Amino acid sequence: MPSTVIPLLVCDDSAMARKQLIRALPADWPVSITQATQGEEALQAIRQGLGQVVLLDLTMPVMDGYEVLAHLRDEGLKAKVVVVSGDVQEEAVRRVSDLGALAFLKKPADPDDLRRTLAGLGLLVPSTAKGPQTPPRAEPVLTVNFRDTLREVSNIAMGRAAALLARVLGVFVQLPIPNVNIFEVSELHMALTDAQRGERLSAVCQGFIGDAIAGEALLLFHDSEVADMARLIGVQPKGERDTSEMLLDLASLLIGACLTGIAEQIDVRFSQGHPQLLGQHASIERLIHLNRTRWKKTLAVEISYSLEGHDVHFDLLLLFTEDSLARLTDKINYLMG
């Protein structure tokens, strides 16, 4: 292998994200590509000399991107890191910079932005006619499935929603890895019961439809945390009506941002209904009973936000109708192609 070839490590738990990022690489950049699916794998590859340049995700299982950057700093490893993440909170950008990342790009990385960033950092040294010619880069074969792709689409969408929430509340939002599952009504009941954690809930529902894709977004608030949310927003609800309005406003912000993020990626336009308070201080059994006719078999995307330094969580479920699966599959397959 010519000495001009740069060892590049692409680290992301999503095969879809790695595929998109590798496709976005400059075609004339002579690199050898290694992939890692989480932070521990990335560190092992870097220690072996396989990550002179690293394109690093933040939200991953086992060891996330923040931990990778901290280990690189503590071990004195010289990898040059560009973070590529769906978590676009201003605080996330500041934290990775403090930990030594050279740049931050939002997902999905635009090829032109990636090229400019690499060139600006002096990391992109294209092959030239005068120098040794680098053989055409062998693109790795990546198998990407529907669930992984929808999870990555949801990951990007939830990151945009978190950035809005962070600005409104003045907090750092901790992001999970979304779950994507097909549920029967009984299984949905179990998932919601788990989300309840033995507490009383208030729930907001908002319907959406567009291009033969329809469903409902369900946002669960834990009643024990509502007072903390009010303090963060800087309001003092004087009764149930004020509390309901606050929950509806927060739900509209989170649900709207998530749906917009998904719609932009799969090239649809969703019309959204007005958010409705399904129940306040209700048990999960009551919420399920009230909506049993709506929730049969559903494709569910589960996202659980939490606020750093506060005992506040938001459990968001995007429930796509069974009739939507064919069209949604077509849209996802196009992204996977």
Rank of each mutant, 00 (worst) to 15 (best):
R147V: 06
I156E: 07
L121K: 08
A103E: 11
T128H: 11
P132A: 09
A161R: 05
A138G: 08
V141R: 15
P135D: 04
R137Q: 10
A138W: 07
D148G: 00
G170H: 02
A101C: 10
G100S: 05
D148P: 01
L118F: 06
V171H: 03
L165V: 01
S127D: 12
R116F: 05
R151K: 14
E139C: 07
E139D: 15
R115Q: 13
A129R: 13
A161E: 03
R116Q: 14
S97G: 14
A162T: 04
R116A: 14
V93M: 15
P136S: 05
L124N: 01
G100F: 08
T117E: 09
P111V: 01
L118A: 12
V125P: 00
P132H: 05
L123I: 09
L99V: 09
I156L: 05
R151M: 09
A109C: 09
A101I: 10
I156Q: 06
L142A: 10
R167P: 01
A109Q: 08
Q174V: 13
G159Y: 03
G100T: 11
R116K: 13
K107A: 08
A109W: 08
L169E: 00
Q133T: 15
F146A: 01
D113N: 14
G159M: 00
V173M: 03
R147D: 01
L142W: 05
T134Y: 04
K106Y: 04
R115D: 09
K106A: 15
A129N: 07
V171E: 07
G170F: 01
N145I: 04
L121F: 03
R167I: 03
R115N: 11
K106F: 03
T117N: 04
T143E: 14
D148T: 00
A161G: 12
V125R: 13
T117R: 10
P111I: 01
T128F: 02
Q133D: 14
E152M: 09
V168A: 09
A109P: 15
A162I: 04
T134G: 07
V96A: 05
L142K: 05
S127C: 11
N145K: 02
P135H: 03
L118G: 05
N155W: 07
E139G: 06
T143M: 11
L123D: 07
N145R: 10
T128R: 15
V144P: 04
D113G: 05
N155S: 14
D98R: 15
D148M: 01
E152Y: 11
V141H: 13
F146D: 02
G100H: 08
A109M: 07
P132D: 09
R95A: 14
R151S: 01
V93A: 15
K130F: 11
V93N: 06
V144I: 11
L99A: 12
F172L: 06
D98W: 08
L102T: 08
G131M: 05
A157S: 07
L114E: 12
A109N: 06
F172R: 10
D113Q: 15
T149I: 02
V171P: 09
F146Y: 14
R167D: 12
R95F: 01
G131I: 00
D110Y: 04
G159D: 02
R94F: 10
V153A: 02
V153Y: 02
Q174Y: 04
L123S: 09
L105F: 06
T149M: 00
D112N: 13
A129F: 14
Q174G: 10
R151P: 01
V171W: 03
N145M: 05
L121Y: 06
V144G: 04
R94A: 15
R167W: 00
V171C: 10
V125Y: 04
